[in-house]
Write a protein that binds this DNA or RNA. Structure first.
Length: 556
RNA sequence: UGGCCCAUCGCCAAAUGGUAAGGCAACGGACUCUGACUCCGUCAUUUCAAGGUUCGAAUCCUUGUGGGCCAGCCA
């Protein structure tokens, strides 16, 4: 029994303290996406963090769509977000909510504020409000409308609700402090007019609450105890607390901020991804070069691997960017023992086994995953003509090279020992054909006399092998690396586009279902790309780099 | 030049005043029917800097330095 206590992250420490001091009993968290795009790896951190906390503390986790701005939201994103959250394994059970379902309560809350003299209707235009707000270093000026009486405000707000004003004509502002060094407290707008059909409430409302006002109310209504959000909302916390205090909620939720997840060498951030999609730089939201959940899924990442990655990254308040290699490590780690592997030849060169009967084919049984034999076996035809990888043969081997070269005996993986006798080159010096002899006694990959060979190489039966397309996707560099110039124009490196390569794979592997749609090709990990594969052609996405096994040995 | 936040190895990240965990990456070596995997070893006398408090400081204080966020009727 392992009893070692794992160190707790700072959020867990806060929760522990809240529980110990009786501020909270059942931990309730939530993931509150705005339905205006697809989820990406950054959201996965928030989802898994919130759901994980609820799980760890035996609490509850809600999924809530923060749909308070009908001008930016679309119903179609709701479904995709639900799907992605579910795929990641975060279970909201029966607690799926929409902020828009609380519009009535938010309206009442606004009335309460007005009655308390804490909110007023302003006649200022957006431009004027900006001017009155002051700057980072200068205090703002009082809104001329701020002096209105409670009754007048009540009447005006009612008129706003009735649709008596056009968009932007009037807003409701909270009365806090126009001189606050925190801009969010300079009488923030809490309700605006928008004559727009909302995806959920249709035309029931023409006034909509602002995030800063709505969010604490949503949390309070749902009984959220810990409202976890990202660092850029730190400055909003005093406003969050103000709303919760003025509305006099009995169990005020607490906002806690953590650092967003950034990854090296990729574009993160919904708006950047959206632009790449909109400008058709990538094929869509699930383009494998992206780190949207849909793209990662298509590329072969598992929910488990993403979960592990998020756990590995940890939670803190320092802006940081995780190494992409860590993500790759997680998928390797997850798939390693779980999936079947196949043999593949990326750059084929023909091998002829001179002493193997012409026209003969035998079915060899090979183990799907030699590290996990419970994954079963499959058969691969073996015959006189094979393909091996060009890198697995050298005319003049460097020191410590133990794959195929003239006179050297190697093992064709799970098949036979073969020894190269000769080879043929074309005019350009390229090897076109390698001639070998095999040892019939070594069937299965071992010689009864106990003879050892140093090298084991992948092979594929030439007449039966399937041609497959490998897409090598380079990640699109992150914005700091200069995807966007200062003027907003795109500066994309053409090298980041898809590279296609034809390779050969075992015929058996063509049946993608046999592998649960995952394939290992040599030491690299690939997955079948269902979006591009046809009966004729299988398309793989390379999801992590081939490891050193694929490089020439180092010269000392 | 207003306010808030952050700073520990190439990258994440623990340590909560008691003498710098762990993971990724990298590098040696062993093993191996995938040069993968696995295994073993190496990798911060010092925590952005300088002062101060203390028997004792990565932790507290001060002043700098570097980075992030804030002037939407976005979230």
């Amino acid at each position: 029994m392992e009893q070692e206590m794992e160190s707790k992250n700072f959020i867990e420490q806060i929760i522990d303290k809240d529980i110990a001091e009786g501020r909270c009993q059942t931990v309730c968290t939530r993931f509150p996406p705005e339905p205006n795009g697809y989820l990406h790896i950054g959201h996965a951190k928030s989802i898994l963090l919130n759901a994980g906390l609820a799980n760890k503390y035996n609490g509850k986790f809600n999924l809530r769509f923060d749909d308070t701005n009908p001008t930016k939201e679309k119903i179609e994103f709701v479904e995709s977000i639900k799907e992605d959250v579910k795929w990641l394994g975060a279970d909201w059970e029966d607690r799926l909510f929409f902020a828009s379902d609380y519009f009535g309560q938010m309206y009442e809350a606004a009335l309460k504020l007005i009655r308390k003299g804490k909110a007023y209707v302003s006649d200022l235009s957006a431009d004027e409000i900006r001017q009155y707000r002051g700057t980072l270093t200068e205090a703002g000026k009082e809104d001329p409308s701020a002096k209105r009486s409670v009754d007048e405000n009540l009447a005006l707000f009612e008129e706003m609700k009735e649709g008596r004003y056009v968009d932007g004509e009037k807003v409701l502002r909270a009365r806090i402090d126009m001189a606050s060094p925190n801009m969010n407290l300079r009488d923030p707008v809490i309700y605006r007019v928008a004559h727009m059909t909302h995806h959920n409430t249709q035309d029931a409302w023409c006034i909509y609450p602002m995030y800063d006002f709505a969010h604490p109310i949503e949390d309070a209504i749902e009984g959220i105890t810990h409202s976890i959000c990202t660092l850029e909302f730190e400055d909003h916390r005093p406003l969050y607390d103000w709303v919760v205090r003025e509305l006099e909620y009995e169990h005020p939720p607490k906002q806690i901020e953590f650092a967003k997840l950034y990854l090296t060498n990729v574009v993160t951030g919904k708006r950047y991804i959206k632009r790449l999609v909109d400008e058709k730089i990538v094929d869509g939201w699930d383009d494998p070069r992206l780190v949207s959940i849909a793209a990662l899924k298509r590329r072969g990442f598992t929910p488990e691997s993403i979960k592990k990655f998020i756990e590995l990254c940890g939670v803190s308040k320092s802006n940081s960017s995780a190494d992409y290699a860590m993500l790759e490590y997680c998928i390797r780690e997850d798939l390693k023992l779980k999936k079947a592997r196949i043999m593949a030849v990326l750059d084929p060169v023909k091998v002829i086994i001179d002493n193997y009967p012409e026209g003969q084919t035998e079915e060899l049984t090979v183990v799907n995953n030699m590290e996990n034999e419970s994954l079963g076996t499959h058969t691969v035809p073996f015959c006189r003509e094979l393909y091996i990888d060009r890198d697995d043969f050298m005319e003049v081997p460097p020191r410590k090279y133990f794959r195929m070269y003239p006179g050297n005996e190697v093992r064709l993986m799970q098949a036979y020992f073969v020894t190269c006798n000769s080879f043929i080159k074309d005019e350009s010096g390229k090897v076109t054909e390698i001639h070998c002899t095999y040892d019939p006694e070594s069937k299965g990959g071992n010689s009864p006399d106990g003879r050892k060979v140093k090298g084991t190489i992948h092979w594929v039966p030439a007449p039966y092998a399937k041609s497959a397309e490998v897409r090598l996707y380079e990640n699109i560099v992150d914005e700091e690396a200069g995807v966007y110039n200062e003027d907003g124009s795109l500066n994309l490196n053409p090298n980041s586009l898809t590279v296609l390569k034809n390779c050969y794979i075992e015929p058996y592997a063509a049946d993608a279902k046999a592998y649960d749609s995952f394939q290992f090709v040599r030491q690299g990990y690939f997955c079948v790309d269902a979006n591009h594969s046809t009966n004729e052609k299988l398309v793989f996405n390379r999801i992590v780099s081939l490891k050193s096994s694929y490089q020439l040995p180092k010269q000392s």
